[in-house]
Write a protein that binds this DNA or RNA. Sequence first.
DNA 1: CTCATTCCGAGTGAGTTAATCAAGAAGTGA
DNA 2: TCACTTCTTGATTAACTCACTCGGAATGAG
Lengths: 144, 144
Amino acid sequence: MKLSKKSEYGLRALLELTLAHGTATLQRHDIAARQHIPVEFLEQILLALKRAGLLSSRRGMKGGYTLIKQPQDITLGQVIRILDGPLAPIGCVSKTAYQKCGDCPYANHAQCPVQHVMGTVRDAIAGILDHYTLADFASSHRKG
Amino acid sequence: MKLSKKSEYGLRALLELTLAHGTATLQRHDIAARQHIPVEFLEQILLALKRAGLLSSRRGMKGGYTLIKQPQDITLGQVIRILDGPLAPIGCVSKTAYQKCGDCPYANHAQCPVQHVMGTVRDAIAGILDHYTLADFASSHRKG
DNA sequence: CTCATTCCGAGTGAGTTAATCAAGAAGTGA
DNA sequence: TCACTTCTTGATTAACTCACTCGGAATGAG
C-alpha cells in the first residue's frame, strides 16, 4: 500500500507546474531545486508525463516544461496511474488494468472474500484520487 | 498501492482458520492445499501471525494452528499491518508508524499538499480495513 | 526410540526502485 | 556558422524488496 517516490516527485513537480500555469515555463532544475528532487530522476518523470500528454516542452535556452491541460482536468489518480500503474491493491479488482488471479481457489467464482474487500478499498482510493484535481491540489497548498 | 502476496496468503489462511474456529486445528499443508499457497512460504506467514498473538500452535502429530482470538476481534487492518507494514501510502501520514519525510520542502510546515491528500487516502483505507473483521470476511465467503 | 510437525535463521533468484550517466537532437543568441 | 543551453533517449547500476526455498533444530505423540 505504498506510493512510490516517482509518483510523489511527479505530483510535487506538477504542483509547481500548476502554480506556474499560464505564467511561465519551468525548467528541470527549477522544479528540482524548489521541490528537492534529484534532477536526472525528475527528468524521466517529466518525460513520462509528457508522453502521457500532460506536458509540453521546449529545448534550448528559454526552454522548459508547461502544463498542456487545465489543472482542473487532471486528477491525481491519472498521474499516479501513469507513474505507478493501477491504483487497485490487487490485479483482480482493477478497473483500468484487470488481471485474473491465477492461483486463488475462487478464481472464476467471484466469491473470493479477498477480492470482495479489496474491491471496496480500490473504490475508496479511486473515489478520492480520481476526483482530486491539480487545481484542488494547488489550492490546498495556497491555503495551508 | 499494492497488497503483497504475503498479506493475501495471510488473509486466505486466516479465512480457513476462521472457518475451522472452535472445531479443529489446521496444519500447514491443509491450509496450503485448500488455498493453493506454497507451504514453506505459508509457514513463515503463520509464524508471524503467531508471534503477533493471533494464533497458537502445537508441534508433532495432531499439531497445527488455531485462532487464539475471536474472529470478530481481528480486523484485516491488523493482519495487513503485521505482514506488510503500515497501511498509509507514505510514512508522513501513518498513524501507527509515522515517519517524518526528510526531503520534502514542506517537511515541518504541515502544509504539504501530498501529505494532505494522502492523509485522506490513508483514512479511507484504514476506515475500511480496520472495521472489517475476520468474522465479516468469513460470512462474505459463506454467502458468496 | 521414531516419526510428524512446528520453529527459525539464512539464502537465493527475479524483479523493482531510485537514481546516474553519456551521447544526441533541437532551440537561442552572437 | 558557432557556442551554449536545454530537453531526449537509452543504458547502466547499486540497493532493496518480494516470493519463495532450504536445512536443521526443537517439540510432541505413540
